[in-house]
Amino acid sequence: MSRIPLTPVESLAPAARDFMRRRGELNVFRLLAGAPEVFDGWSTMVDAQLDSRTFGPRLRELVILRVAYLQHCAYEIAQHTDVGRHAGIGDAEIRALSAEGPVPGFTGPENTVLGFVDELCVTGTVTRETFAAARAVLDEAELTELLLLVSLYYGLALLLNAAEPDIDDDARLVTSP
């Protein structure tokens, strides 16, 4: 049960209501809507990341799920396991993303990106070599967008772990195709 009350959908301001109509009436959004001075800015950021076509949905969801597992965030894991499956991540791959230590079974740029994410989330930074490996498979726009994605879900996991909203029964995050 959420340690901070969730805002009822019917009490939402119009912009927040519109955001949730498009993205889903998720408990995380109803939680954060309790901070109306900053919610619209935050939801604009979420829209911009989820609408971006820089990464395919599969790579985006691999990154989100890995961050969620590293941060032990049951809420993010629950929501993004479904999104990840729809993006073509198989059950064995999803299990692999929960590994302690390096994630087994991925190759090429996916493996490089997951290694970068692991090192960044676990140590708070990356070595010159790890950075160079990521930069070799990502251009500057992709690399900075990867950082924004990790940053969003790493920080959000802290908030979710602190507030502990219930995992949604039916509501599911709507991501762009």
Partner: peptide, 10 residues
């Protein structure tokens, strides 16, 4: 700023 629109959202 290389990230364009996601950066603007941030």
């Amino acid at each position: 700023a290389h990230a364009g629109r996601p950066f603007a959202g941030w």
